[in-house]
Amino acid sequence: MKPSPFTYHRPHSADEAVELLRAYGDSAKVLAGGQSLVPLMSMRLAAPEHLVDINRVEALQSVEVGEDEVRVGAAVRHSRLERDEEVYGAVPLLRQGLVNVAHPAIRNRGTTVGSLVHADPAAEMAAVLLLLDGVVELRSATDSREVAAADFFLGPMQSATGPGELAVAARFGRPPPGSGSAFVELSRRQGDYAMCGVGALVTTGQESEITSAKVALVGVGDGPALVDVTSAAAGPGGAFREPQLAELLASQIAPESDIHASAEYRRHLALVLTRRALGQAHERAAA
């Protein structure tokens, strides 16, 4: 359980970081919080020859709450984002998602952008990025580009971040007024990756009618699944029509069986947790 040897690099700017990534290509990996990478290296499932530690890059440390979005730098830790009151005021769904990510001691080190790049199929923040029409900013030594959440998650442990690319920040859109959100999940032990997790965003109009309702599910497929469930809303103040919800979900999720839960149980959880998340989000939208 010891990582294999590597050469350590500690850039102090994003320019320096991408230059190192260009120079070492496939043999280099970015080290952010290390909460996923270090265990993989200890188990020798990963053995990069070069690590580019971005924790000291000042420019990647910032959280900016703008008029339309919240921008989170790549070196920002889960716990810092979770505790930021201004962020919570602007986009409550960020904290609602983050408190479900692992345990506090892991959130004290792991980064939110790192968890997006790592693209675990059960990662909560991937669902949050999708629900909030988020964008990931990528940079290489020669190019910069932005990838929308919908195009970012390519499969289990696979994001659009290419070799030589550094994710510099993620931007999460601020939901329109009249919105409410929630994140609920079920895991074997508190803090574990969820068997199924559901984030919900509900927006209501002047008459408190539901104008938009979306959920994003994790743990029930190769990656996060965004499902627009507006058509299942039953009208003002009403709950969601369950048969329609079930139908909408069924076509979008593809749970698999593993030692934690069977596919059938996950499918069941998906519907129950979706109903709960929508209920909470709707209540908060109305409040």
Binding site: V38, S42, P104, A105, I106, N108
Partner: peptide
Amino acid sequence: APIRSCLVF
């Protein structure tokens, strides 16, 4: 802040 010392270099 509490962290896990087996998960950092």
